[in-house]
Computed example of a mutant assay.
Amino acid sequence: MEGADRKAKGASDLGVRAASAVVMLAVAGAAIWLGGWVLTAFIVAVGAAGFWEFSRLASAGFTGGARLAWTVFGAVYLALAVFVLVSVSVQSISWLALIISAVIAVDVFAYFFGRSIGGPKIAPRISPSKTWAGLAGGTVGAALAVVLNSQVPRWICEWREPASGYVHGGFATGCGPYWQPQAGDYAALIGVGLLIAVVAQSGDFLESWLKRRAGVKDSSKLIPGHGGVLDRIDGLVAVSLLVGIYLLVTAPQIFGFS
């Protein structure tokens, strides 16, 4: 009877997780589709919820000056990520698509590589489920996300306007120019994928460490079956800052700097 109860509870939890995932995808998808102030408000609301959870973890895990320092760090950390995401969503939606798809790809590929290959853990005391095989999978996923985000718009344009022609360039909107990877570019793609995967998992490790300090399993119970908002955006926040640094150097006009 006890085994049957556990199976029933597992099935119930899976149903709750699936329903929550559908709602999250629907809300996020609608915000991205509508764009404009709706998308901006959605990003700010998610960031505010993430900070509320971060401050709760800091309050539970630290005292005195350390608590204040970590709370301030969380405010700056999440505010900068929100600033990057809002800026790219206004100026270049392709960068927002790249950030989101790369983080999802890291999570999905890391999960399947880690589960199927297993092997040594990266930091078992902080996050027991993270393996080096998972990091390799995340690298593959992130590299594929970079390629697809650069090539899918070109493929669509070639299908719509087959006679337009394209030249080697960078990320762009409209129908060209688009980046067309050469043979030597793929080594660089692996390096970019590794960097994104490491940064995404570093964000995950940071949150896992804070939760261990606070003695909790989830950052909150805001999302049934999934824990808190911070549990879902820990890697996204870190990768947003990485992309923000890159764009600040290569395209500062996105942030209003000349």
Rank of each mutant, 00 (worst) to 15 (best):
V16N: 01
I43N: 01
V22P: 03
F205D: 00
D204N: 07
G176D: 10
G244Q: 08
S94L: 05
Y77L: 06
G50I: 10
W155L: 15
S220C: 12
S127M: 06
S202R: 00
S92L: 10
V38R: 05
V103G: 01
D231M: 11
F73E: 11
G36S: 15
F171M: 15
I156D: 13
L194R: 04
E161H: 11
I122Q: 02
A200T: 01
V108S: 10
A133I: 08
V103K: 02
P181G: 10
S55L: 00
K217L: 09
A48V: 15
W33F: 15
L195G: 08
A8C: 08
V38M: 15
A21T: 13
V192H: 06
G170Q: 14
D5S: 12
G244I: 07
C175H: 14
Y178F: 15
V140A: 12
Y111P: 02
S220Q: 12
A8L: 13
L96E: 10
F73Q: 09
L135E: 02
A145Y: 03
D5E: 15
G215P: 11
L98T: 03
V103D: 04
G35Y: 14
V88C: 10
F205W: 05
A136P: 05
L210V: 04
A238I: 03
I100V: 13
F109A: 14
G193W: 10
I190E: 11
A28N: 06
T40R: 12
V198P: 01
V249A: 14
A183F: 14
A30Q: 05
G235W: 04
W95Q: 09
F255C: 11
V243M: 13
G169Q: 08
G137S: 11
V23E: 04
F205G: 00
G134V: 06
S101E: 01
W70Y: 15
V239L: 05
L189H: 14
G137I: 12
L85D: 04
E207F: 06
A97Q: 09
G47N: 03
I117H: 05
F51K: 03
M1N: 15
A19R: 09
V38C: 14
G138R: 02
Y111A: 06
R17L: 07
G244K: 04
G74M: 06
A214M: 13
S12A: 15
Q180P: 00
I93G: 01
L78P: 00
L144K: 03
G3D: 11
A28I: 08
A19Y: 04
V27S: 08
Y111G: 03
Q182T: 13
S219I: 14
D13V: 06
F255M: 13
L98W: 07
A110F: 03
A123L: 13
F73R: 06
A30V: 05
A105V: 02
M24N: 02
I100R: 00
N149G: 08
G191H: 11
V108K: 04
S55E: 08
G256I: 10
W95G: 04
G114W: 04
V86N: 13
S94W: 12
A41F: 09
L248M: 12
I93P: 00
G15F: 06
G10A: 14
V243T: 08
V146P: 00
A66R: 14
F42L: 08
G50V: 11
D204C: 07
V106T: 07
